[in-house]
């Protein structure tokens, strides 16, 4: 697969997943956040979709950086800088499309580090990191695509009993327990969309 084809597929498939699950994200966010995660993500990725042609014609790293900036400027919630910084950092870490498992893992790791630093957070705080870090670990451990999907879903489910200590959900204290984290869910949706893109022949 060439870089331009992969970029276009990623944009379509991530956009579709977010669109299809926007209400679900908003419902999850209404339980423990401010109820705008679905709308915010939809607005952000729609803006990225609007730039699909230009992005597909850019080098892989540049396209990631540009898409990240578009998310920053359009999402409107904390997820804008968080996802935006992740994409920008991934774009900075790799000029070209990853060609191996190790390169793919390094790319994701760069994104995760950016989320940690932007969100001043780490695993265990009931955030998107609780989906992304287990996914990275599964990739590093040699998981195939189906196993990566499973790792993402299991990680999302594992946020349910967690106590939120970051973001809006932290205001709820113990009342945040028992709900899936919307950011972990949206991260898993993106992971699934990336898996879709890699599976398509």
């Amino acid at each position: 697969m060439t870089s331009d084809v992969l970029i276009a597929r990623l944009i379509d498939l991530i956009g579709d997943r977010i669109e299809a699950h926007a209400s679900e994200l908003t419902e999850l966010d209404q339980a423990i956040g401010d109820g705008d995660h679905g709308d915010n993500m939809r607005r952000g990725f729609k803006a990225v979709s609007g730039e699909k042609e230009a992005l597909a014609n850019m080098p892989f790293g540049e396209a990631l950086k540009k898409a990240g900036m578009t998310l920053v400027m359009n999402v409107g919630g904390a997820s804008g800088p968080l996802y935006g910084s992740a994409f920008m950092a991934m774009g900075k870490s790799a000029e070209a499309m990853p060609g191996s498992r190790v390169e793919a893992a390094r790319l994701l790791e760069a994104g995760i580090e950016a989320v940690k630093s932007r969100g001043k957070s780490d695993v265990g705080a009931k955030t998107m990191l609780d989906a992304l870090v287990p996914v990275l670990k599964s990739i590093e451990a040699g998981a195939d695509i189906a196993a990566v999907r499973k790792a993402a879903d299991a990680a999302v489910e594992a946020t349910k009993p967690m106590l939120a200590t970051k973001g809006r959900a932290a205001f709820l204290g113990e009342r945040s327990i028992g709900h899936i984290d919307p950011g972990a869910r949206s991260s898993a949706l993106i992971v699934h969309a990336v898996c879709d893109a890699l599976e398509e022949k």
Binding site: D34, V72, G77, A78, G80, L82, R118, G167, R168
Partner: peptide
């Protein structure tokens, strides 16, 4: 005010 305002402000300052 709330979370996203802070994160977006930090991003704006950096930019």
């Amino acid at each position: 005010d709330l979370g996203g305002a802070e994160t977006n402000s930090e991003m704006a300052i950096e930019l």
